[in-house]
């Protein structure tokens, strides 16, 4: 994220251009493995070719913009809240993937997000999140008979 004001080259902008180019490459590589099966169908390759070509052109366009330095100004970034929120989401995903149930995960996500937004009452917020999760669980599982990912807590109900 270091942009040098003298040359006005935007490094982040160049990174974006490179990412677009990589994406174009991935699409192209994936397309090359497809087969045309029906003799009448235009085939599954045409659209990936268009997308890949378009992304390549846009990578060039974005690179030019970055070299000219005409990306909009950005403010400084506070990483802590981002990590907190993403951490909360990661916990939720892990708990569901490994059978911990969604209630604990939801409560954690709630508490982590509210901490990210400056509250300093993790335990209280965890309880609030848990209450919301229980309420939603009862609504979904009992009223709509949807199967939500269950863990030890869910089995109590």
């Amino acid at each position: 994220m270091t942009s040098s004001p003298q040359r006005r080259i935007d490094v982040a902008g160049l990174v974006i251009a490179v990412i677009l180019l990589v994406l174009a490459g991935v699409v192209w590589w994936d397309m090359s493995k497809l087969q045309i099966l029906s003799p009448y169908d235009l085939g599954p390759k045409v659209m990936p070719i268009i997308v890949s070509g378009g992304l390549t052109l846009l990578a060039i366009g974005n690179a030019i913009g970055a070299l000219r330095g005409d990306l909009p100004a950005r403010e400084s970034l506070d990483w802590k809240p981002i990590i907190l929120i993403l951490g909360g989401l990661a916990c939720l995903i892990a708990l569901i993937a490994f059978g911990g149930g969604f209630m604990i995960g939801t409560a954690l996500l709630f508490a982590a997000t509210s901490t990210a937004f400056g509250r300093r009452a993790f335990v209280t917020d965890f309880v609030i999140g848990a209450v919301i999760a229980v309420f939603v669980y009862l609504l979904f599982a009992k009223l709509l008979t949807l199967s939500l990912p269950a863990g030890p807590l869910e089995r109590l109900f």
Binding site: G88, I132, V136
Partner: peptide, 15 residues
Amino acid sequence: PQPWLYAGILVFATM
């Protein structure tokens, strides 16, 4: 309050 609002939104979205 903003912390709860956004926490609620995320819980909502994931749920």
